[in-house]
Design a protein around this nucleic acid. Structure first.
Lengths: 220, 220
DNA sequence: TGCATTAGTGCAGTAAATGCAGGTTTTGAT
DNA sequence: ATCAAAACCTGCATTTACTGCACTAATGCA
């Protein structure tokens, strides 16, 4: 497959570079058109024309119109998955999440304009909101798997799943900016992000230990 | 609008009854076809033919193909919304959730077969999973609003949102049967459901009080 | 019974997405 | 430098979901 995001790769052939170029062009143009004229109102044909490619090309690059909108966040999300799955033995899942946030700040700040645009477009269409939620679900499962290991439980148990849901509910929106006000959706300061992560951790550990206590009480 | 689910309504005219009849027929037939031949493989035209209506009629009844799949759960979810929003002063949000579950058991048991079929169909298609998640999001917002009132906070604050996410993560799947195994997706016993709700409550209150403690400690 | 309402239908049209085949560019080995 | 293979882009045709519009027939009501 393609699997972009190689900043290491300097000279991986003209073909690859061109391909990447068309891809980013399509995304840029599409996001702009979506923001200007609305997601539903913008057709693939319009995007193709504005990006100077054929409509067929747009469809070959992106399996669905929605995928164009989320292309810029795929790489970042992929890195979180890697971080959680391949985390060192001395690091727990919430720690992996924390490290990921701190590392991604750079990328987020670079693409802040596009991310703001993306946020605006997503919030304006129910289909896109649904699509985003489906992606967050994958996160939740991922987090639940990690947390299950941390807690010595199964990924299907209640604790890891509730903890994962709580963490994801906070993480993905608050760490990228205020969900409720698309206009001032700027990346919070490093300190604010750490504070939010700490609060999430507090909540999760509080919930988990409360359940442990309840279990012990019942067993005695 | 339509707003089905009136078991009280005995004689609301022939026209209404016919309309409701066609609606349920379409849903029944469609769910069966989806389960047999797959969601994507089944076309609107096939559903229409099997339900003995015109394709145009199917589209007028349901704004999107996905809506056919979720039609049977709309009423139930609507009732939860009402319950949370119109709950008496002496009842908190988790209590409203609990009452809703206990009340809906009857409906769920009646429609168990269809619900099982629905579960199977949803789990087999990513688009449907996304659609479902989007609906759960509405729940989360609803729960967050209720919990915010309970806690004397704003619906946008971290606690109510994390608590709502945790509650919803557990509620909607575990209360209707094992998410992980579509085949044995039967409604759990009343006792099991209450146990699950208690655990969710334990987690949520544990998380909330942990955050309160942390705040107090920091303030001192 | 007669009349207003509305459910259901047929038709035409738009837009997304896919398969296929042909033409062009890039690549890599000789 | 040349040439063959691979990969990319494209146009074309097709399927499918969905919508607007006009029309018919059934229903509700006075």
């Amino acid at each position: 497959m393609q699997m972009a995001g190689e900043s290491i790769a300097q000279s991986i052939g003209l073909r690859e570079r061109k391909k990447e170029k068309t891809r980013t062009t399509i995304v840029e143009v599409a996001l702009r058109l979506f923001a200007e004229n609305g997601y539903q109102q913008t057709t693939i044909a319009q995007i193709a024309e504005a990006a100077d490619v054929s409509p067929r090309t747009v469809s070959t690059y992106f399996p669905a119109k929605e995928a164009i909108v989320f292309d810029i966040s795929f790489a970042s999300k992929e890195r979180l998955a890697d971080r959680i799955r391949a985390r060192p033995d001395d690091q727990d899942t919430m720690g992996a999440l924390r490290d990921w946030v701190l590392d991604e700040r750079k990328v987020w700040n670079q693409n802040e304009q596009q991310l703001t645009c993306q946020r605006q477009v997503i919030d304006g269409d129910n289909g896109l909101i649904a699509y985003e939620r489906a992606q967050l679900r994958e996160f939740e499962v991922l987090m639940a798997e990690g947390l299950a290991v941390d807690l010595g439980m199964e990924p299907g148990d209640l604790e890891p799943r509730m903890a994962a849901a709580a963490a994801v509910a906070v993480a993905v929106f608050d760490l990228l900016g205020d969900e409720r006000d698309s206009t001032k959706a700027e990346i919070p300061s490093r300190a604010d992000q750490l504070r939010i992560l700490d609060q999430a951790l507090t909540f999760v550990t509080g919930g988990v230990s409360a359940m442990r206590e309840a279990r012990n009480t019942a067993a005695s």
